[in-house]
Design a protein around this nucleic acid. Structure first.
Lengths: 140, 140
DNA sequence: GGGCTAGTTGCGACTGGGTCGCAATCAATA
DNA sequence: TATTGATTGCGACCCAGTCGCAACTAGCCC
């Protein structure tokens, strides 16, 4: 357990949004100035292997980066809005049921799950509907 | 509609496994020798936007590549085995229910979903159990 | 406390998937 | 058939992530 690892872990734990590796590096440097990019990646790798964090793609809304979050008791869905870029989290007993079904029916031993949904969030869906109504009310 | 696009589309449609961009390029070159990498990427982009294909990460089992498949009537889960690397597909009414619930409860307008599960497939789970039994039966 | 060693770090070079700008070309329409 | 907006090929480029290696250090044992 080195100072560098502690810094990375603390940053992930205290973050209240999804961080990518670059953001993680910046924040970790506040605590441990000299820390290197490679070290951050290696620590992420380690934490993934230990199942302490989950890796997310968030529908590649912002390029190919990966995001990280501490693994919670309950898996959740990430809802990524293509329009405003917001990420919502959603969890449901149905998801748990689905995982149980997969384990049972397919005999698959689940270690990680990643359910990402892309589309329009509630606010953006409403906004688009409104825009459409206005466009058809006054056709050119 | 150019010959290059036709080539890419035909390759994806007739493929019976998940292709990454590089494989797609190779196969497309069989049909359309001069076709360029950038063109393939641009066509993939286009097909994604038109919702004709889905993009998969397959749990980054083989690095950061993306894989593509033609969008089917029914969404399915991809089960990626960390041990043997096989990809299984699984679909269930529960998944459909979950999507309906998200639409309703969160007011989220779903356009794409990606559910990937990593772990051990049935065969590999059995193999590991067997290996463990043998290891504990004859401790050093 | 001091020395030993396996494991960790920093560095720099590298890989590989994917993107971009631009000039040349082409498909589709009039 | 002439026109033109879209598409292509090319080369340079970007950026996330990886690797090999020498230097360093945490943690243990004495």
């Amino acid at each position: 357990m080195t100072a560098q690892r502690r810094a990375v872990i603390e940053v992930i734990q205290t973050a209240n949004e999804h961080l990518d590796a670059a953001a993680l590096l910046d924040l970790a440097r506040n605590r441990e100035p000299g820390i290197d990019r490679a070290t951050v990646y290696r620590t992420i790798e380690l934490l993934k292997r230990l199942r302490l964090i989950d890796e997310l793609d968030l529908m590649h809304l912002q390029g190919e980066k990966h995001y990280y979050e501490v693994k919670t008791r309950r898996d959740h869905v990430h809802l990524a809005c293509f329009r405003c870029g917001r990420i919502e989290e959603y969890s449901s007993p149905l998801f748990e049921q689905l995982k149980a079904e997969i384990t049972e029916q397919a005999g698959f031993e689940i270690r990680v799950t990643r359910l990402e949904v892309g589309g329009n969030c509630h606010a953006c869906a409403e906004a688009e509907k409104k825009a459409q109504r206005e466009a058809s009310a006054k056709p050119r």
